[in-house]
Design a protein around this nucleic acid. Sequence first.
DNA 1: GCAATGATATGATCACGATCATAGCTGGCA
DNA 2: TGCCAGCTATGATCGTGATCATATCATTGC
Lengths: 213, 213
Amino acid sequence: MSAPENRRAPAPHPGLGFLPPALLECAQAVTLAAGEVLFRAGDRPERLYFVLDGELILVRVTRGGREVVLQRARSGFLAEASVESRRYHCDGVARRTSCACALPMGAFRKALAADAAFRAAWQKHLTGEIRRLRAQSERLALNSAAERIVHFIESEGEGGAIELRQSVKSWALDLGLTHEALYRALARLERGGEITRNGARVTLASRPRATSR
Amino acid sequence: MSAPENRRAPAPHPGLGFLPPALLECAQAVTLAAGEVLFRAGDRPERLYFVLDGELILVRVTRGGREVVLQRARSGFLAEASVESRRYHCDGVARRTSCACALPMGAFRKALAADAAFRAAWQKHLTGEIRRLRAQSERLALNSAAERIVHFIESEGEGGAIELRQSVKSWALDLGLTHEALYRALARLERGGEITRNGARVTLASRPRATSR
DNA sequence: GCAATGATATGATCACGATCATAGCTGGCA
DNA sequence: TGCCAGCTATGATCGTGATCATATCATTGC
């Protein structure tokens, strides 16, 4: 486990806006080297991690030596469930050089117990995550690149259009596609007039043609 | 919207065990015909649905006339997020003849506000769902049937084995595969000695061979 | 200015899941 | 007893995403 770099003012992040000031006060910014282990299965959760940059994963190594990834966090909280449980059930590892905000678990739980507004905000965060994840699961169950793109724009965007906040390459990861497949599918959809692209903005045509895959 | 069939004692379900008795008291068992609409986008959430049997979906129909499914609930709550929001953002539809337990939203919110134990249990349910959904998303991002099977057993099972509570066919839906692909992959894994099947119990071999896909 | 790096593409090939078809088996029911 | 519906299972074919390769462009650093 790496030593915390600084004791105050971790990089502010919109996803952390709902934390009470007292809790942000004791947040620590940590930088992790690629491959660094944050915790092991069986450990008692001592911090709740919020990924600012890089990639932290929740992984279980089976007796057979297989690796099963339970979560890849590229932005957002690593393991919300650790707030509720006394022990981790899997390992936390930095897959690349990463930067995270670590919230002491004791303080987090205390704030949750004492602060009704924070509790409500946390509950809202949790239900929002569920909604997002459900949509993502439905999306990943679609088996053509074009359908996933349309589903993404419709469920994550606003009024049939979306402003991409990431590279096409990392969008491909979210869609469960290789970047090549995504580039090709985008080009095909654009040629077919089903979407239009304008920089980072992708807009769905309101009158779809016969879906030419 | 169909009229509630009976005013008390909806079929008890383990997934509802954490509800306070007072709330269960006002639960209504409802049966829905295939295609029946529970609510429309823009409606004010009046009930929280828990699917007992059948399939309820959360769906958004785009201006272009496409259907985007945000959630398919075949067991469990339909739209937890409706507890937090004043309006639905998509439609709720029964995809087949279904049976659900409807909890009046007002009573649910009141119970959440008044009952700290229930609040804690609800929070625990929410974080558990997040954990499950994150694992499912990772699983669906794997692109071979064999990998998804192994991931499922490892993440949903107990000690490298799982007792299937459903038919292989509906398991295939959970894995984002056709049932044919799942039957074949299971047969291949079994032939290769990577899993053993014993009725509804599927066990992972502890020493995996070179994954012969 | 130039090398190095990473994102943006696109081409060719191949593996594997989807699809359609077929068949055995089972349980429920009249 | 016979029929039907649904699950289990496997075969053949096809489409498409993965993979490997290559090229261009933009950005960063020296």
